[in-house]
Nucleic acid binder design. Structure first.
Length: 113
DNA sequence: CACATGACGCGTG
DNA sequence: ACACGCGCCATGT
């Protein structure tokens, strides 16, 4: 899947998401130095999903869980987020709770590679 | 090689 | 909120 470089960048970035926060596939792609490649992030998580990554903190840009409502994956993601105190209602997190303040975003951007 | 299919995103209507 | 269209890219027919 993809080149090893992109894979590592994506994994590293996903691990930066603090507990209790969430990010979108697009944000992860940007921070990983892969602007416009949100799909690649999803693909990568699908393959690397079994590894110790907080994959459940990644949502669509509109705050919705990417899996079909009611599916096992969606249920697991929901419960994991709830455990961290993230409010999930109707398969979505309010954008207000994205947790990526401009400050945090800038910090992560500076830390990047 | 031509298409179709996604853990996507953004602009429009 | 819903539906398209288009851009994006790895994978599979």
């Amino acid at each position: 899947m993809v080149n090893e470089k992109a894979k590592k960048q994506i994994r590293a970035t996903v691990q930066l998401i603090p507990s209790g926060c969430v990010a979108s596939y697009g944000q992860i792609a940007d921070l990983a130095g892969l602007p416009g490649r949100a799909r690649l992030v999803g693909k990568c998580l699908q393959v690397e999903g079994t590894q110790p990554l907080p994959w459940y903190r990644v949502l669509r840009s509109d705050g919705k869980i990417a899996f079909p409502p009611g599916s096992e994956f969606a249920k697991e993601q929901r419960s994991r987020l709830l455990e961290e105190g993230v409010d999930v209602r109707n398969n979505r997190v309010s954008l207000k709770q994205f947790g990526w303040t401009p400050e945090l975003h800038a910090l992560l951007h500076d830390l990047r590679f």
